[in-house]
Design a binder for these strands. Sequence first.
DNA 1: ATATTTGCAAAGCCTTTGCAGGGGA
DNA 2: TCCCCTGCAAAGGCTTTGCAAATAT
Lengths: 139, 139
Amino acid sequence: MKSRLNLTLREVEALLKEHGVQASAQRIAVCHYVLTTNTHPTVDDVKAWADENFPKMSLATVYNTLNLLAGVGVIKALKFPHSDKAHFDGDLSNHFHFLDEDTGKIYDIPGESLKYQLDLPEGFELSEMEFLAKGKFQG
Amino acid sequence: MKSRLNLTLREVEALLKEHGVQASAQRIAVCHYVLTTNTHPTVDDVKAWADENFPKMSLATVYNTLNLLAGVGVIKALKFPHSDKAHFDGDLSNHFHFLDEDTGKIYDIPGESLKYQLDLPEGFELSEMEFLAKGKFQG
DNA sequence: ATATTTGCAAAGCCTTTGCAGGGGA
DNA sequence: TCCCCTGCAAAGGCTTTGCAAATAT
């Protein structure tokens, strides 16, 4: 099976259409970039990448595109406590994040690494659980 | 044993001094308010409360005071995905939060409601785990 | 007397929005 | 042709900061 990390531009284009999104050049490029990286890029990261690898893309388009993609569920928007900037994640599989408090870097942790059992009080209907591990990583 | 919800102003004053914080009138008032409420107030909430219950307090002082208090660990600063505003929590006991996705309200869930076992990959040194439950609450 | 805190206003950071021009369906 | 998308610049929301006046030690 093909990993999202190896997707072609052509395949990303198809993916967008499947989600009812018009596949403009900018959207394909941004979506492809986010899907094929594990770095949880911020808007600025994506803009910096675009400035190097795309003819012309405005910051507003980067914002709008990332929000659009997150809105239709092709990617996910993330917020972390150490920064006000939004991060974007192309990995929709079961995983959560580890934040290195020294470097600010974000690492992926497989969902299987965490086993939990939740017993909410009466009246609470759970739709989703969010986890964040914080600490230090010695690479 | 005394709950933080019943703390007197005098006791809050002592608490601040214990933390090496000069106990100004504004700081005592803000700290007392946050410690004796369960509503996870935002800066605006605290400002609104102050406007009604304190002779005069500027917005900057509210910001600075809340940050100071969070910095010394008397209260905790919280960020939630549905809003950019910081929330403040006077409850330092073992608990996590439930976010009602319809109303934006935040509820406290006892830490004991969640049992978990975490097995991080090599090299990750955990300092703290953060949990957020999301869904709906039928009061 | 000296150091700290407050208040005000300005500025900062990140993000969204209005509108005009351009490109794709 | 028509509608959607893009780019630019302006504006918006939340927070921080510089500085002078007021206050506490």
